[in-house]
Design a protein around this nucleic acid. Sequence first.
DNA 1: TAGCTAACGTACTGGTTCGTACATTAGTGA
DNA 2: TCACTAATGTACGAACCAGTACGTTAGCTA
Lengths: 221, 221
Amino acid sequence: MTSVEEPARPGERIRDAARTQAEILDVATQEFARAGYDGARVDEIAARTRTTKRMIYYYFGGKEQLFTAVLERAYGVIREAEQQLDVDHLDPVAAIRRLAELTFDHHEQHPDFIRLVSIENIHEAQHIAGSEKLGKIGSPALDVIRRILASGRESGLFTADVDAVDLHAMISSFCFFRVSNRHTFGALFGRDLLDPAQRAHYRAMLGDMVIAYLTAERTAD
Amino acid sequence: MTSVEEPARPGERIRDAARTQAEILDVATQEFARAGYDGARVDEIAARTRTTKRMIYYYFGGKEQLFTAVLERAYGVIREAEQQLDVDHLDPVAAIRRLAELTFDHHEQHPDFIRLVSIENIHEAQHIAGSEKLGKIGSPALDVIRRILASGRESGLFTADVDAVDLHAMISSFCFFRVSNRHTFGALFGRDLLDPAQRAHYRAMLGDMVIAYLTAERTAD
DNA sequence: TAGCTAACGTACTGGTTCGTACATTAGTGA
DNA sequence: TCACTAATGTACGAACCAGTACGTTAGCTA
């Protein structure tokens, strides 16, 4: 998620609008993910940037719009990752398992994104609703799921009546919960869902669950 | 979750410590669930109570402790509901399905609780960690799952190596996600996971998924 | 019924925090 | 090279908000 790594080399030009904006977004992402929308401090974001608070308002207008911009970029990263999905060469069962594993990996690798989405849900997705970009972002993963499901149905491997959005919800719920509820789950049940030693176990469990669901004979709906 | 409904009948006695505390907890639950920890306003909680802000500090000490008290009571409600679980008379498959459905129903009926848990996760479960009550609350549901799994294993219906906590995580993740991520999911995919018309569909889907997982032949671990 | 204490109310404060008015400089195009 | 604008910095204000000092009263008990 980090877009700015270059140290400010002294001789270099000082004014760089694009870099300043990217740096603000980087720090804002961390700060909002850390503390939530209301817990985040604009002054804190500014302090951890090479620029000042004035620039945040200059480029983004305000805290609310900054949070929306953070969300837009975070969802953009997801969409890009999903566009890299390439499972069409696999048979349907392997393809679905692979897709589930990539979702699993991606959620694990982007805990800040998970936190931002949780925070946005607390605010009833009002920033997404107010964003032009996010309204029509779509989901490449959904198209992939549709293709796999269709081919799995054709070959008679999968149950016929499974919907792509539903399957996406099923996969996401497990991957999301594992990260989002890590702390309360760990405190209450004494088990760290992100324990590296358990990672392969949960990754296989997710795949097994999805495949079992898709290949089981269904009772009457 | 609401403990106080009686309108303040004018002739009645004015001082009632227990009622005042319960009323503060009721309103605080709503306010914290509405706006998150940092978004919640102590003044707002006081205003929507028949008492004043002074009483919040008198009884609870501060905003942080009030939130902890809210969490303690909310988890207490869950625990009580779980203690009512009675599925031992069912065969293992029906029992697991019933347990999943009851979890599904309970999550749907307590969106405020889901929001509080999401909020607590943003704060890395620090209030649970600091609470004597919540540390050792346990989970009656886990014992039920353990019993069902054991009997299902004995009769050869279930896969042998499934852990109770893992199964609880699987069921909870779907039920929790459906409520916690309703807004972002709806905004991005145009589907309301809480649409009453879809309720039976998702309820059955959860049961089918869990049963399929438990009764499928497992690939090598 | 006197007095004692738990329960409650009012009014305020000190620090915090979003946002902005005003000043300044870098870089660019004529 | 000169002026113009995008980009940046400083200092401040006004509102908000958690928490408290101080005062009051209800209801119980001796």
